[in-house]
């Protein structure tokens, strides 16, 4: 075999190998993206005085973004819901959106036998769709009733929001959007409706709007007595 041929085969082989591997490497990069950073803690500040009673734009936006049916039966999945509260003593009414509070010490993560429930470095609490066995212990442990069990087969799923019958799920803080550098669907919809009741941002960045607001105004965490340090803060409660 002459050297030209040898060279051709060698180079050709290397090119073929490159062609075979490169797309995989690209996909690997795409799939993994940047790892969640512990320097960030995503959270929300919800101003209940701006949240309009009867408005459920945040709920609709969440359902659309994450491919949920929007059904409100007892076995239907609801990641976010509107709560209408009435102070038992004074009769004052409060309206607010309720969802996974993305606790720093999430009870759902503690109780999950297979570690399917987990907290990302940036504070987002998620369920690994491949590890969840559907025992529902996390639903028993969540103080906020934030989780839903998928009781029926799911259709028309969004490619970046994997779901599945027989597993538990809850608000992901629109992790697919956050990882693209966007805000959550509910916050966006609330702003679009002109209420701007939901402020999303990085609690660890002292310069962020959410950090500045939390420093300036009185806010509270729901069931703060449990010491879970939720990432969601509420104003006007």
């Amino acid at each position: 075999m002459n050297s030209g041929r040898r060279q051709f085969i060698g180079r050709g082989g290397a090119m073929l190998a490159g062609l075979a591997i490169a797309p995989g490497m690209l996909l690997y990069d795409l799939a993994h993206g940047r790892p969640a950073s512990g320097a960030v803690r995503w959270g929300m500040l919800i101003d209940t005085s701006r949240c309009e009673s009867g408005c459920d734009d945040c709920v609709k936006a969440c359902n659309k973004e994450n491919g949920l049916s929007g059904g409100t039966g007892p076995a239907d999945v609801q990641w976010i819901r509107k709560l209408e509260l009435k102070d038992s003593r004074t009769g004052r009414g409060v309206s607010l959106p309720m969802m996974c509070q993305h606790c720093e010490e999430p009870p759902c993560v503690d109780v999950c036998p297979t570690a399917a429930s987990f907290k990302r470095a940036d504070g987002i609490v998620l369920v690994d769709r491949h590890l969840c066995i559907g025992c529902r212990y996390c639903m028993m442990a969540c103080p906020y009733k934030a989780r839903s069990f998928v009781h029926e087969p799911v259709h028309d799923q969004k490619p970046d929001v994997p779901r599945g019958k027989g597993t538990v799920e809850s608000c992901t803080l629109c992790v697919q959007r956050v990882d693209r550098g966007e805000t959550t669907a509910c916050a966006e919809a609330c702003a679009k409706a002109g209420h701007k009741a939901i402020l999303f941002g990085n609690l660890n960045d002292p310069g962020s709007e959410i950090s500045r607001r939390i420093k300036a105004v009185a806010s509270t965490q729901i069931r703060a007595d449990l010491g879970l340090n939720p990432g969601l803060h509420y104003e006007g409660l």
């Binding site: 007892p74 609801q78 819901r81 509260l85 009435k86 038992s88 409060v94 309720m98 009733k145």
Partner: peptide
Amino acid sequence: YEARSSFGD
């Protein structure tokens, strides 16, 4: 508070 919602609160 008295609570009411679509999720049985």
